[in-house]
Design a protein around this nucleic acid. Structure first.
Lengths: 249, 249
DNA sequence: CGTGCTTTTGAATAGTATCAAGGCCGGTGG
DNA sequence: CCACCGGCCTTGATACTATTCAAAAGCACG
C-alpha cells in the first residue's frame, strides 16, 4: 500500500467530485489527501470500522458490500474511476459497508476535517454533494423496489448490465464486446440477491439463447437490446448517475 | 385543501428540520411556505409530477410509495409529525414517489427557490440536510439487504415494528398498547414486500402465539421483546433516525 | 338488511434455495 | 512435462417457501 500523491488538477478522472472545487480549495485538498495503491482483492476500508473520511477512486475497480444474515456478503455497489466511496459512512460513527478492490486501484483519501471545512466554506460544493446523496437515495430505493418484484433471472441480467455500465467494455472495437471486469459467480449472485447456482444456470440459458457468451469469468454481451427488453427496461435504475451532469459548480 | 398558515416558531413539531434555522430565516420561510390540510386518503403529491419543492408534516400520518411492476404499489416509507417528505425528488425533475395521507394531516410546503436560498446562505443547514440524506441512504440500503435475506414473516414483523416506531401507540397507558395507525393488509404487504394473503396468515399465527392481538385494522403488541427476537434484532434498521439527534445547528 | 369490499383460509402451483456429485481449470510440485 | 490438488463452476434432484387462484366469511356503510 504505497503512498503516491499527485495534484488533483492533473488527475485524469474529471468526473470526480473534487474537480468541482476552486483552485485554492484544490490545493488545500492536495496538501491533505493521501493516495494509496492497492492490488486486487484488498480491502480499502472495513464495515464497522471508525469513519475517518471518504475515498475517491483515481483509477481501478471496487466493490462495496456488507455482511448480512449468516455472514452472507451483499454487494451494494460497484465503483470505478472518479467515483466516491465511503460516503455512506460520512456522518456516522462506523462504516455500514466494506470496500474491496476487484482489480489493482489507486484511491485517494480525504479526512473528515478537510471535508467539513470544504462544506462550510463552499455552499455550492455542499449543494452538489447533497444532490448526489439525493440521487443515491433514489437509486437505492428504485433498486429495492425492483429487486422485490423481479425474477432472479431479471435481477441477474440487471447485474450484468450494471457491471457493464460501471466498468464499460474492455475493447470497444471488438465484437462481441467483453464486460471489463472479472466477477465470480458468487459475486454476481450477491449483486443479484440470489445464489451462485442460480447465476450459473441463468448464464447457461442466456448463452444458449445467444444473448451472451462466457469464457471463464469474462462475459460478452451479444444482444444488449434484447437483454434490456427481458428486464422490460427496468434495469435502467442501475445506471450510475455519477457519470451524468450534476448541478455544475 | 384549505390553506392555514402559522409561524414556524409556534409549531409544535420541534423535531422538524426547519426548526434548525435562525430567527430571520424562519420568518423568511414563514412568508413563503404554504400549509395545507388533508383528509384521510388524499394524495399530497404524485409520482412523476414535476418537483416544485418539499413538504414537512406538521401533524398527521403519511405513506410514501411508488408504482412497480404490474402497478403494484410499493410503500417506501411511513412518516409522521415533523418529518420531511418529497426530499427524494429534490434535485430531480420528477418525484420518484407519491405521498398520501393515512389520516387527516397538516402539511407545509416550501418551494425549490426558497430552499435553494437557505442552502446557499446557511452552510450548517445544508450540512445537516446532507447528513440526513446520508442517513436515509444507509437506512435504505440496510433495509434492502435485510429484505433480501429475511423470510416473509420476519419482514412482516419488521413492518409492524416500523409502524409502531413511526406512529407510536394510541394510548401509552393501556395494555396491551395499540399501534397508532390503521393499515390495510395490502398496505402491510406492500411495506413487507409480500402479498396480502401472506400478511393475513402471518398475523393469524402471531396472534395464536400471543405476540399480537388484532381487531379489524388495529393491532396491539403483546410481546415486543419476543417480536424483536424473532427478527433477530435486525429490524432495528427500520427505526426512523429523524427522531434522533442530528448535528445541531 | 343487503351490497361491496376486505380479510381469512384452503389448495394447487411456481419459483428458488439447498444439497450433492461431477467436471473443469489453473497452479504446484514432482 | 505431466499428474495431482483445490477451488470454482455446472448440473441435477429435492424440498420448501411464497405466490396465485378460489371461495367463504366478516365487516362497514348506505
Amino acid at each position: 500500500m504505497n503512498i503516491i500523491n499527485a495534484p488533483c488538477e492533473t488527475c485524469e478522472s474529471k468526473n470526480c467530485f473534487i474537480q468541482k472545487l476552486s483552485h485554492e480549495q484544490l490545493s488545500c485538498v492536495d496538501s491533505q489527501k493521501q493516495t494509496f495503491s492497492f492490488f486486487r482483492n484488498q480491502n480499502i476500508f472495513w464495515e464497522n470500522a471508525a469513519v475517518n473520511g471518504v475515498y475517491f477512486i483515481k483509477t481501478g475497480k471496487v466493490k462495496v458490500f456488507s455482511m448480512g444474515i449468516n455472514d452472507r456478503e451483499k454487494i451494494v455497489r460497484l465503483a470505478s474511476d472518479g467515483h466516491i466511496i465511503g460516503h455512506r459512512g460520512y456522518g456516522a460513527e462506523k462504516y455500514p459497508v466494506s470496500a474491496a478492490t476487484l482489480d489493482k486501484s489507486l484511491v485517494c483519501f480525504i479526512d473528515n476535517a478537510t471535508l467539513h471545512e470544504l462544506f462550510m466554506n463552499n455552499p455550492v460544493f455542499s449543494y452538489a454533494m447533497m444532490m448526489f446523496y439525493s440521487q443515491e437515495l433514489r437509486k437505492s430505493e428504485q433498486r429495492a423496489k425492483y429487486n422485490s418484484q423481479m425474477s432472479s433471472r431479471e435481477r441477474i441480467i440487471s447485474a450484468l448490465l450494471y457491471a457493464k455500465e460501471t466498468f464499460g467494455y474492455s475493447d470497444t472495437e471488438a465484437f462481441p464486446p467483453t464486460i471489463n471486469v472479472h466477477l465470480s459467480r458468487a459475486e454476481i449472485a450477491s449483486l443479484s440477491d440470489t445464489t451462485k447456482e442460480e447465476v450459473s444456470r441463468s448464464l447457461t440459458v442466456l448463452e444458449r439463447d445467444n444473448l451472451i457468451m462466457k469464457t471463464g469469468r469474462s462475459i460478452q454481451i451479444l444482444n444488449e437490446k434484447q437483454l434490456l427488453h427481458l428486464i422490460k427496461d427496468y434495469g435502467i435504475y442501475m445506471v450510475d448517475e455519477e457519470k451524468k451532469q450534476l448541478n455544475p459548480l
